[in-house]
Design a protein around this nucleic acid. Structure first.
Lengths: 164, 164
DNA sequence: CATGAATCGTTATAATGTTTCATTCTATCG
DNA sequence: CGATAGAATGAAACATTATAACGATTCATG
């Protein structure tokens, strides 16, 4: 099972989480970044599932863990994690998901299931290069692509048919 | 000049505006929708340029015109215009732009110049079908695509070189 | 006109994100 | 070790974006 298909399938999510934390630690060590307790905690919470998490939900969960936190606590951690490619922000949801390929240069697309709310990260060259080519045709220099696809994952599509 | 390239080039914007209002009136008449004064006003303000406009900016401009308006006034108009495909929402900017092809089924991508803040709407089949194909490969039923590309338009890229 | 549905005005509030400044931590240098 | 400068944090206030709720008005239609 590849990382990109894992989100919608049954899997041992503990492995996802552990791998994400391990990769983050490695990346920060390599780059001389400080993966502080707050940042690690937020990263762990973001990775607690494949469902995107909002900033204030993270705040609540931090408080549940007994952490004294205010909005800037969360936003600062998110900013750090975004800046170094450890998480992604889903613009259409104002929410955050873990990056499956931290440290690797990649252009990601997100498949967002509107029923189970799980999100899969995809890196299809066919998509990113079609966007680049289309941009270039209009003499537009593309620097950053946001691609968010809403719909139903295989499992939820079947559920919907069952209950239709 | 096609609609999709107009945004970044010199052009008679009055024509864009008038055409947008004309198309909107036509579409509403065909569908039995009420293009009320508030809705027309908001549509006109959204179309006042190719730069996306935020809800509260619209609110301010309505007030400048002497209209008594509160947030729901604007959001209700925006909701109507979005629902019937007269405008688009740019998720990454929390802002709105006029739709260049109201009434036509189309999947749009947006080229957003980070310098002049103008936005061009594109409908590249190569992009939308690459996204559909990529989704299908993961057995994901794509219903709606959000594609927002940040970068520099031709004009601004040259400006940047000049001043570099 | 009577009526019901759609639209609008108004107030309040929720949800999301930022600024600011004082304080604490941490790595490094003398 | 102690000084120190930069990074990170705590805390309060504030700014921006969006929605809920409810009564009043408008409008097409019978």
């Amino acid at each position: 099972m590849t990382a990109s298909t894992a989100a919608f399938a049954e899997h041992d999510h503990q492995r996802c989480l552990q791998q994400a934390l391990r990769k983050a630690a490695l990346l920060c060590q390599e780059r001389g970044l400080r993966l502080t307790e707050q940042r690690r905690r937020v990263l762990r919470l973001v990775w607690s599932s494949h469902q995107p998490v909002g900033a204030y939900e993270l705040l609540d969960r931090l408080r549940d863990e007994g952490i004294r936190a205010a909005p800037p606590t969360v936003y600062r951690a998110l900013e750090f994690l975004l800046e170094h490619g450890l998480i992604h922000r889903l613009e259409g949801l104002n929410a955050y998901v873990g990056c499956t390929r931290p440290g690797e240069a990649h252009r990601a697309q997100f498949l967002i299931c509107d029923r189970c709310h799980r999100v899969a990260e995809v890196s299809a060259d066919s998509v990113s290069s079609a966007i680049s080519a289309s941009s270039a045709r209009l003499d537009f220099q593309a620097a950053r692509q946001t691609v968010e696809v809403h719909g139903y994952c295989a499992h939820c599509r079947n559920e919907c048919h069952d209950h239709a």
